[in-house]
Design a protein around this nucleic acid. Structure first.
Lengths: 243, 243
DNA sequence: GACTTTTAAATGTCAGACAAATAAAAATTT
DNA sequence: AAATTTTTATTTGTCTGACATTTAAAAGTC
């Protein structure tokens, strides 16, 4: 663990980077204990608060965890899919909300990726996942449902579809694409008619998955994407000319 | 910005979460200045070092940036695609290396996602992106190339393919899948024969993109995936039984 | 009016202290 | 001797107060 780069300021950022490099390169392995804060401040020739700021940076990325007490300290954390998943969702959500990404662009990305899971999911989906999808479809058909709850159920439905591919890397990668869309979807007001349409498409997807018919899943997803984008266009249209 | 939750320890984590929530919810908007560290310590009733640790956590996630001097302070950062991209690559790389993800699983995810870009890329790829791909193919055919350089060029090639879809959200989502594979790929020793094969498939992809033939791109990617997985199997086989 | 100097505000860093948690060692009791 | 309790040492968590550095604006000067 060395620090060489140029910048004279932000010592804590440099130290964090040095430790991060050591972790990424494998110099520090999972569950290995880092030197204590006191030792680190000696090694890096900085004060303990500075070391602590560096460690908090790493903790924010789930790269380390800390434990108090004797034989405590900072340990290299095994980055779990769960941690990575939630980080990804947060990042993706902020990315979309801060960069004026058009609904079309986000929607295209989401459904392109989802279709990438379609074939695998058709092949591997479990009965359990299928049941989850059916349950979400049922929930979506309940009359009193708010738009937000409808969207949340939509996310659950699609998540089950993605998880059906039985590939944790895919599930992780898709997390951002699917969940980060929700705030954008929430801006749409779903009429009874449009809900009906979406539910019909969801049912077609579930049916196709049940029949393990990859082509049909793909086709239904294509239509769902087209319909969703049409809905968004209608909403935008109405906003512009609210009759 | 309030903090209510249960945990009594890790004040800085709570404060970071409170501010993070304020950003995600839109209570704090991009480029808005946060209260000064002194004011925050007043508001949250903690010391300045604790506030600073919280701010460093947020800085580690590129949620804020800080500026020194009068009229300086912490500002809500506009999360750029670039920042998100590199974070995603780091996270994905660590995720794969720490979770004993099989080569097959990672490879399947990567090529599934890449094929999701194939149709869009065939439709939209620019002459420039095509030229990049041709240049990388040429580089890959150079005799003196190390395996690492070959892999790096491979990543550049595929990145151009993904960027061809002209959808920044897709490019961002794919970043992890494509780049995080590199360390795994680096474990493969590429013989002259296997390089030849890969280059031939890359050429077929480039040709198909030039002809805007989505089907052909998809097919070539499928074959490339199959070949890559076969290569990995061969390597594993040789390790187990080194003649 | 243009330039220089001063000032004030803010982050960056440091030193030293105490609190709290925790595991291991030591002492005590059974 | 074993089990339990107490002590101790280590380590992170937090606080106080201070000084350095940067920066923009205000004040002063030519």
């Amino acid at each position: 663990m060395k620090l060489k780069p140029s910048k004279p300021t932000d010592l804590s950022a440099h130290i964090a980077q040095a430790i991060r490099d050591a972790i990424v390169s494998g110099e520090l392995i999972v569950d290995e204990r880092l030197p204590s804060e006191a030792e680190l401040s000696d090694q890096f020739q900085v004060s303990r608060p500075t070391v602590r700021e560096a460690l908090k940076r790493l903790a924010a990325q789930s790269l380390i965890r800390t434990q108090r007490g004797a034989s405590g300290g900072a340990f290299v954390n095994k980055l779990s899919f769960e941690d990575a998943y939630s980080q990804q969702v947060t990042t993706s959500t902020l990315l979309l909300s801060m960069n004026a990404v058009s609904f079309d662009t986000a929607c295209e990305a989401r459904y392109s990726l989802e279709r990438a899971c379609a074939a695998l999911s058709a092949e591997r989906r479990t009965a359990d996942q299928l049941a989850t999808m059916r349950a979400e479809i049922f929930r979506q058909s309940q009359p009193g449902l708010t738009d937000e709850a409808f969207c949340a159920s939509d996310v659950s439905f699609h998540r089950a579809l993605v998880d059906g591919a039985a590939n944790p890397v895919l599930s992780y990668q898709l997390a951002g694409a699917v969940e980060a869309m929700q705030p954008l979807m929430n801006m749409i007001t779903f009429t009874a008619r449009s809900r009906e349409e979406i539910i019909a498409l969801h049912s077609r997807i579930a049916d196709a998955l049940e029949a393990r018919d990859a082509k049909a899943v793909d086709q239904a997803l294509l239509e769902l994407e087209a319909y969703t984008r049409q809905l968004a266009r209608d909403v935008a249209e109405k906003r512009r000319k609210p009759n």
